[in-house]
């Protein structure tokens, strides 16, 4: 049961930020799909917490501004999934959002909450990393923008300070001739916490060689990240089964190098290889290149 709390709602960003700047411990929340669950587990129900609702702050616009897609932090997964701009400019994010939780969860959970919660299995993060996303942060005293790749510092930890709010996420679309792939492995048909997630963007040049490639993975490393060793290896190669397999092997080596051999390694090692191959194949199949074919 959720213990007694104080509920705060503001419609002005500055007023909201003032609460956060006060001495009191104030927890911001958007969809609450992570926060309320944590609150319910509270070990000390007599310690009354204050919750700041960010939904009245108008942080759910999605628009394009000089080639950058701006997504309000409090946009729900459903809003992201259904948004036409995102469908055409950031298709990997559309896909990722559509596979989060259930319809009910997507109707409440937000993209900002997903990133800030910083779970290793947060599904929007691998997608957003492909688009070099940046996190726009505000406090009463300062505005700052942090690349997503630096925003999450360890599982469930971010650079966000107590007095700060995330207002928007900026993502940089790639040209139309990029192909993309996204694979979320879960145990059942739907409503899955990701066992592993892999995403990729690929561009092939006139000679049929990989011109640019971005690959990211969730629930593979302690922090969801791009796999630069894989990217480096692939650039300049012709997309071929053996090259993709090699890419998978590098990812698996990297996984073991970062986390060591853990109880889950015997399974994850071969599967991460496979998911990389699948996602690269998928991305390649979507590459538009008139010179090829």
């Amino acid at each position: 049961m959720i213990p007694e709390i104080e509920y705060i709602k503001e419609t002005e960003l500055d007023l909201a930020l003032q609460h956060l700047a006060s001495d009191k411990k104030v927890i911001p929340f958007a969809g609450g799909t992570d926060v309320l669950i944590e609150l319910r587990k509270s070990k000390n129900p007599f310690d009354r917490k204050a919750l700041l609702d960010v939904k009245g702050l108008g942080l759910n616009d999605i628009y394009i501004h000089s080639d950058t897609v701006i997504i309000g932090a409090a946009s729900t997964h459903t809003e992201v999934e259904d948004n036409e701009i995102i469908k055409s400019k950031l298709p990997v994010l559309t896909k990722a959002s559509s596979l989060i939780g259930s319809k009910q969860i997507r109707n409440r959970g937000t993209i900002g909450g997903n990133i800030i919660n910083a779970s290793p299995c947060a599904d929007t993060v691998p997608a957003l990393l492909l688009y070099d996303a940046q996190i726009v942060i505000r406090s009463l005293s300062e505005d700052r923008t942090v690349p997503l790749s630096e925003f999450i510092t360890s599982p469930y930890e971010t650079v966000l300070q107590k007095d700060e709010l995330v207002t928007e996420i900026r993502a940089f679309p790639v040209a139309e001739d990029y192909g993309w792939g996204y694979y979320k492995l879960g145990r059942r048909g739907a409503v899955n916490i990701s066992r592993m997630t892999v995403a990729a963007l690929m561009k092939v040049d006139g000679e049929g060689k990989i011109n640019e490639i971005r690959v990211s993975a969730g629930s593979v490393f302690p922090i969801t990240s791009r796999i630069s060793d894989v990217e480096k290896m692939l650039v300049g190669e012709k997309p071929k089964a053996e090259i993709f397999r090699r890419a998978g092997e590098i990812a698996a080596e990297k996984m073991i190098e970062t986390s060591g051999r853990r109880w889950s390694t015997p399974y994850k090692e071969s599967v991460v290889k496979e998911l990389i191959v699948r996602v690269l194949n998928e991305a390649y199949s979507r590459c538009k290149n008139d010179d090829l074919s």
Binding site: G31, L36, I37, I105, N107
Partner: peptide, 13 residues
């Protein structure tokens, strides 16, 4: 109009 889990919504919201 949207389906939500009412266990994950606070009344004041």
């Amino acid at each position: 109009g949207k389906a939500v889990n009412s266990c994950l919504v606070l009344a004041p919201e």
